[in-house]
């Protein structure tokens, strides 16, 4: 959770980091360091990023979103997704649980350096927003023939 943000050698923060890393290691669940623009895990929407040599795909698990409210922008390799998920409290009912997110969100995702900001496509289906970013051809592995 503290990840690389606390990488300046203070002993208190070192202790936090050590504890955090140990917990993560013990649970075996969190192999990545926290990005400086990342948010706490479990925050709506949850995000997965996958890559192949040709493309990078970002999946936002954003159920119940109105596609018209989604705002996606990309600047170099920084992808920003903003939107609003409305899940208003019903009137004249008694709530037992209210776990679902209600409100506006904004996530910034750092993509690999070689993505092409001109070639981005997005699609929303079954509550998953999939953003497909093509990588530059120069970055893709090339077969070199021996003459």
């Amino acid at each position: 959770m503290f990840g690389r943000l606390t990488n300046f050698g203070g002993s208190l923060f070192d202790e936090f980091r050590r504890l955090d890393e140990e917990l993560n290691e013990a649970s075996g669940r969190w192999p990545w360091p926290a990005g400086i623009r990342s948010v706490a895990r479990g925050t709506y929407p949850q995000i997965n990023v996958g890559s192949t040599p040709e493309q990078v795909d970002v999946y936002l698990f954003a159920a119940g979103l109105d596609p018209a409210t989604i705002d996606i922008s990309i600047q170099k390799n920084l992808l920003t997704v903003a939107g609003e998920r409305k899940s208003p409290v019903e009137k004249e009912v008694d709530y037992y649980r209210k776990e679902r997110f209600d409100g506006a969100f904004r996530r910034v995702i750092t993509l690999p350096d070689d993505v092409d900001p001109e070639r981005v496509e997005a699609r929303y289906r079954d509550g998953v927003l999939q953003i497909h970013v093509q990588r530059r051809e120069a970055a893709q592995p090339r077969q070199i023939k021996v003459q």
């Binding site: 159920a63 019903e90 009912v93 008694d94 037992y96 649980r97 776990e99 997110f101």
Partner: peptide, 22 residues
């Protein structure tokens, strides 16, 4: 899946976020 559960005179309603499920 995160859920909302509420009750009124008619019954109980449950809402669950399950993105990717069809």
């Amino acid at each position: 899946a995160p859920v909302d559960i509420y009750e009124n005179a008619e019954g109980i309603t449950l809402l669950a976020d399950m993105p990717g499920v069809n």
